[in-house]
């Protein structure tokens, strides 16, 4: 294009188009994270399953077979039980998982995080956890009514001394 004014005008158009593309995809299209009538229920906690085997006192004969610096009277296997969690809202299963203890020796605590979108409203929450292979079955449980408001994150946690807690 030979005419300088036309060239600069066209350059201006190109720069404007460039800025428009930069701006548009910087903010749009918007994403719907949650429907207007929805809330979220989140289960988040860390918990170590019970040791698979209890600590055991070594006999004098067993101790004698060990090197002097290794002669600890109690033997405690490190492996822990997997942790199973099942949660329902009005009998609808929201979460049902069994997690192996992490680590090479499966001796770590399990980190649980599960989040689900649910319609706002009142529910009957039932959450149960099994964490012992020596004592199978549910060892911790909470049943209660909860109310989920639109946009709210209802948090379910667990503390060994207090059991399941709902923060709503």
């Amino acid at each position: 294009m030979r005419h300088p004014v036309a060239r600069y005008l066209l350059q201006g158009v190109n720069y404007a188009l460039f800025a428009a593309v930069v701006w548009y995809f910087s903010v749009a299209p918007a994403v719907e994270v949650l429907a207007p009538d929805e809330g979220v229920i989140t289960v988040a906690f860390s918990h170590a399953g019970e040791l698979r085997e209890p600590c055991r006192k070594l006999s004098a004969e067993e101790l004698g077979q060990l090197a002097q610096n290794m002669q600890v009277p109690m033997e405690c296997p490190r492996e822990r039980s997997p942790v199973g969690v099942r949660m329902t809202l009005d009998d609808r299963v929201i979460m049902d998982t069994v997690l192996k203890a992490p680590g090479l020796y499966e001796d770590g605590g399990v980190d649980i995080f599960h989040s689900a979108r649910v319609s706002a409203g009142d529910y009957r929450l039932d959450i149960a956890m099994s964490d012992s292979v020596r004592n199978p079955g549910v060892r911790h449980r909470l049943e209660r009514e909860i109310s989920v408001r639109p946009g709210q994150i209802v948090l379910v946690r667990f503390q060994p001394e207090r059991g399941f807690l709902v923060e709503d």
Binding site: S26, P29, A30, V31, E32, V33, L34, I153
Partner: peptide, 23 residues
């Protein structure tokens, strides 16, 4: 606000394009 979830977000698609997939 970690006790609230936003309903809609203006996303920067240049950088955050994979996040909606996580839904």
């Amino acid at each position: 606000d970690l006790s609230q979830m936003p309903f809609t977000l203006s996303l920067d698609w240049y950088y955050l394009n994979v996040y909606p997939l996580l839904d």
